[in-house]
Simulated assay, not measured.
Amino acid sequence: MITAEEVCVRIAKKLGSKANSYTLNEDTAFDSVGLSSLQIADIVYTIEDDLEIEFDESKAASVKTVADLVKLAEETQQGSAAA
């Protein structure tokens, strides 16, 4: 399981010194903080590796906010546990 706070920590690491300019929470949209699509993909892949899951690519591509990513991780974990 991953929390919104853990995702925000990963975003802050990607943003570096610019992270202080933003309030990061579950409603944070990835594009609103200036993350490139490559940085977003890196966060998504890191979470997959950490949780030992694999997101559906089309669903992962539609993730827009921290909450979306947390929800996708939860759904994917539940789906893999049921399999």
Rank of each mutant, 00 (worst) to 15 (best):
I2G: 01
N20H: 13
E48Y: 04
V70W: 02
Q77W: 07
A4H: 06
K71H: 14
S62D: 14
L15F: 09
L15V: 03
D27T: 15
S58N: 13
D42Y: 09
S37C: 08
N25K: 04
E48L: 00
D68E: 06
I2N: 00
A73M: 01
E54C: 07
A29V: 12
N25V: 07
T3F: 06
L35T: 05
V44N: 01
E52G: 09
T46D: 15
A41L: 14
K59W: 02
D31W: 12
L51S: 10
K59S: 15
T3E: 02
L72R: 01
E6M: 02
T46R: 11
A61Y: 12
A61C: 07
A19S: 12
E48K: 00
K64F: 11
Y22R: 03
I53Y: 05
A67I: 02
T3K: 06
D42M: 04
E75V: 00
L35E: 05
L69H: 06
E74Y: 07
V9G: 07
Q77S: 10
E52T: 07
I40N: 03
E26S: 12
A81H: 09
E48R: 00
L24M: 09
V9S: 08
N25R: 08
C8Q: 02
F55L: 01
K13H: 14
A73T: 02
Y22S: 04
C8D: 01
Q77L: 14
L35K: 11
S36P: 11
K64N: 14
Y45M: 15
A83P: 08
V70M: 00
V9N: 07
N20V: 15
F30N: 00
D31T: 13
S32K: 15
S58V: 15
A19M: 05
R10K: 13
E5L: 14
T28W: 08
D56F: 03
Q78P: 10
T65E: 01
E48I: 04
A41F: 13
G79S: 04
T65N: 01
Y45G: 10
T65P: 01
V44P: 06
Q39M: 12
A81I: 06
Y45Q: 15
T65M: 00
I11Q: 03
S62A: 11
D50S: 07
D27A: 09
L51M: 13
A82K: 12
L72G: 03
A61W: 09
Y45A: 13
S58L: 14
K14R: 13
L15C: 12
V70F: 00
K64C: 10
T76E: 04
V7D: 00
M1V: 13
I47A: 08
Y45D: 14
I40D: 09
L72M: 07
T28E: 00
A81N: 10
Q77R: 07
S62N: 13
D68T: 08
